[in-house]
Write a protein that binds this DNA or RNA. Structure first.
Lengths: 208, 208
DNA sequence: TAGATTGTTAATCGATTAACAATC
DNA sequence: TAGATTGTTAATCGATTAACAATC
């Protein structure tokens, strides 16, 4: 079965959690599982897990449950992880460096192929096995290497403009670490809002 | 009006967005606004904004709208930002360093008062104006300084155990950067799931 | 005053949960 | 076979949107 309708954002956000749990079960050598067990481990209903998975196909067997490895592989395929999409990182400051060197891009569906920064003093430095390039080379690089995603580690002042520029160069996905929202046409944006996240923690601590 | 019912997670997650927009309008010198304008700027319905705000009180005037400054101040108060909660950071590696030095804790309701790491070679180094302390001092420090929140920048192997330990020392809020879920009783956890976020971007790029 | 906009109630929509026939 | 568990349909629940009286 192929997706009938658009899969809801709520479902998409749960896929990585399922995937991580399946990986863990697999590491522990468990061969099969059930929606009941998965639900218990994740603190959600078995029903929701079956409902979510059914957006993408039939991966289980009645009376038996799911093969851990098979379901893990299916989730991997559903999220597109086996095909590594070429990505660049823009903004090689402290934050950019940590992201470049600590995120396991190749396990998450991407390959980091270029790093760019506007500061001349950073250009030429090595980072995550790549040489930081000046922004002037961005256009030629994109034309040649055709990256489809970009990690944005910029100040909020330049994030929106840079994002638009990147989209005009063919970028179709933005992973945004800048402290602002970004709105662009013809591209998907996923924002890591550190500030917002911390404020929700503050709210929760004041409203226990 | 005080909160009648528990405010839903969806509403809580939107508060920081409202707050950021109000700050921006204020910086631009705009004196008042309306749910219609806010909705337009944020890509949501005016109705939702009024509904959300009404969880916390009546901040507008019929026929006029909202005072930008007043509403910003109210959101600040609702999220508890004016009262800085003492917080510590555990795990002073690359990630911990970037978080300590780049996050504006004091504008987000917290004051970073201690940094801890298990590695002897990091202990004694300065970070974000604080000296990194050994884990052995954690207990005494908590007893004395009574931090209520902790930023976790640990490997997923030790994150859960450390979290439980911190809660036993009085920590009531965890901002979790470890690459795993954390489940603890008697504390609120807000997790920054970089990996999950990147995988959802992969999914979206494969399902345009 | 007339126009605008609130806060709130009612209607709609979508997501979660429960139930169950199919079947391994 | 009997017990277990799926995938799916139906019921419930909650969140979003629309409508509107109140009123600045």
């Amino acid at each position: 079965m192929v997706q009938k309708h658009e899969v809801s954002e709520s479902v998409v956000r749960r896929l990585p959690r399922y995937y991580r749990l399946l990986q863990e079960l697999e590491r522990q050598g468990q061969a099969h599982t059930s929606s009941r067990e998965l639900g218990k481990r994740l603190g959600m209903t078995a029903s929701q897990i079956r409902q979510d998975l059914s957006c993408f196909g039939c991966f289980g067997q009645q009376g038996y449950g799911y093969s851990v490895t098979e379901l893990r592989e299916n989730l991997e395929r559903i999220m597109g992880l086996p095909q590594l999409l070429p990505a660049i990182l823009v903004g090689a400051g402290n934050l950019g460096q940590v992201v470049a060197e600590n995120v396991r891009f190749e396990q998450r569906g991407f390959r980091l192929i270029g790093i760019f920064d506007i500061k001349p003093e950073l250009v030429g430095n090595q980072m995550a096995g790549l040489e930081i390039q000046p922004m002037e080379q961005l256009e030629a690089f994109c034309a040649q290497q055709k990256p489809v995603a970009a990690v944005l580690c910029l100040s909020k002042e330049v994030a929106q403009d840079t994002a638009e520029h990147l989209v005009s160069l063919g970028i179709r996905g933005l992973w945004n670490f800048s402290h602002c929202d970004i709105a662009v046409e013809h591209a998907k944006v996923v924002t890591m809002h550190l500030d917002d996240s911390l404020m929700t923690l503050s709210y929760k601590l004041h409203n226990l």
